[in-house]
């Protein structure tokens, strides 16, 4: 029996194919070799998008699907990069063992954070998660562990195996990062389409009702936070390999806010939305920086406000509304405002 592939599936396959061809297309267009110059630079740009995409998607599992607003997501991302760095640099472990260690640490960390923070909900949960992340941020900055973490300088010079060198083997790294994002996406999609994922959505929609139906919602929230934590930590590990360092900023509030921005720009609860959001944040950031210099976040703020106004469910979330309902949504939103302005003038 042939399984029918929906249009979105074809679009996804086409996008992956386009991303596979991208380095070579760039080389042809610019006339430069694929491993140098502009092709190499743009591969690097997309590598960062892929890593951020996985991080944003992990946040979406928590916020978009389960309805848990965490302000401590950087905790997992940052810890992932530090674990990888410490294991490679100080313990001298091979890469696969260090990766395994990231998973082990992330599971332990998510369970602890989950058990302690999921006792409360709403704003309180948000604050507890923030406190956890800040705790590790301070720990990473502490001079007591300088030998291991590099304190405020960060963990520099992580020895990456030569075959995966982000500078010398850029093209290979590009495909590894693309594969990483693809695999993580397929795993996440599997989770959200599962019976467990259905319960997560039910919790987001109406947690007391879900409990009343017989779901032990605590268990499902713990599962969500653990999967999300492991995914974010692996993205953090990948980021450490790419940058050859781990630094305190990865554990900072800014990193959490980035997850939130990417998820909202792309559309919470859609997986692909936050991945797209990662692309928008990264590429728009680059172009705005080129055009406006270091003050670019000011312009970005304006763009962000426009996106939230015109695409209230994020780019992907709003796109999924039928065209007509998008128009009526704008009409409702801006028609009323215009009407109110006219009334005020009278």
């Amino acid at each position: 029996m042939i399984r029918r592939i929906p249009p979105a599936g074809w679009a996804g396959a086409a996008l992956v194919a386009a991303l596979c061809l991208f380095p070579f297309a760039m080389a042809m267009i610019t006339g430069q070799p694929v491993g140098e110059g502009a092709p190499k630079f743009w591969q690097g740009m997309l590598i960062q998008v892929f890593i951020l995409a996985v991080y944003a998607m992990s946040y979406d599992l928590l916020m978009g699907y389960t309805g848990i607003l965490s302000f401590g997501h950087a905790l997992f991302f940052g810890t992932g990069s530090y674990v990888l760095g410490i294991m490679l640099k100080h313990a001298g472990w091979p890469l696969w063992q260090a990766t395994l260690m990231i998973v082990v640490v992330a599971v332990a960390q998510s369970l602890i954070v989950g058990v302690l923070s999921l006792r409360v909900s709403g704003v309180y949960l948000t604050m507890v998660t923030l406190a956890f992340a800040q705790m590790f941020f301070i720990l990473a900055e502490a001079t007591d562990f300088r030998e291991w973490t590099g304190a405020e300088d960060g963990l520099q010079g992580i020895p990456i195996p030569a075959w995966l060198s982000p500078t010398d083997q850029r093209l290979r790294f590009y495909f590894v990062a693309l594969g990483f994002a693809l695999i993580m996406y397929l795993l996440a999609r599997r989770v959200v389409n599962s019976p467990t994922g259905a319960v997560m959505v039910a919790i987001r929609e109406n947690e007391p009702r879900a409990r009343m139906l017989g779901y032990n919602t605590f268990v499902y929230k713990l599962i969500a936070i653990t999967i999300s934590g492991v995914m974010a930590a692996l993205a953090g590990g990948m980021n450490a390999i790419w940058n050859l360092n781990a630094n305190t900023a990865m554990l900072g509030v800014g990193t959490t806010i980035n997850a939130l921005l990417m998820t909202i720009i792309g559309g919470a609860g859609s997986l692909v939305g936050p991945m797209l959001g990662a692309g928008v944040l990264q590429l728009l950031g680059y172009w705005l920086n080129a055009a406006f210099g270091p003050r670019w976040p000011l312009i970005f703020g304006v763009v962000y406000i426009l996106i939230v106004l015109f695409f209230p469910y994020g780019l992907v979330g709003t796109w999924r509304l039928r065209g007509g309902s998008l128009l009526s949504l704008w009409r409702r939103r801006f028609g009323e405002a215009r009407q109110a302005a006219t009334d005020a003038r009278r």
């Binding site: 989770v191 467990t196 499902y220 599962i223």
Partner: peptide, 21 residues
């Protein structure tokens, strides 16, 4: 469907597709 699923023992089958049940 969520109410029906709550009564079964499949809600933690994270690798399965919900529609398969």
């Amino acid at each position: 469907r969520l109410a029906a699923q709550a009564q079964g023992r499949d809600s933690l089958k994270i690798w399965a597709h919900a529609a398969a049940f």
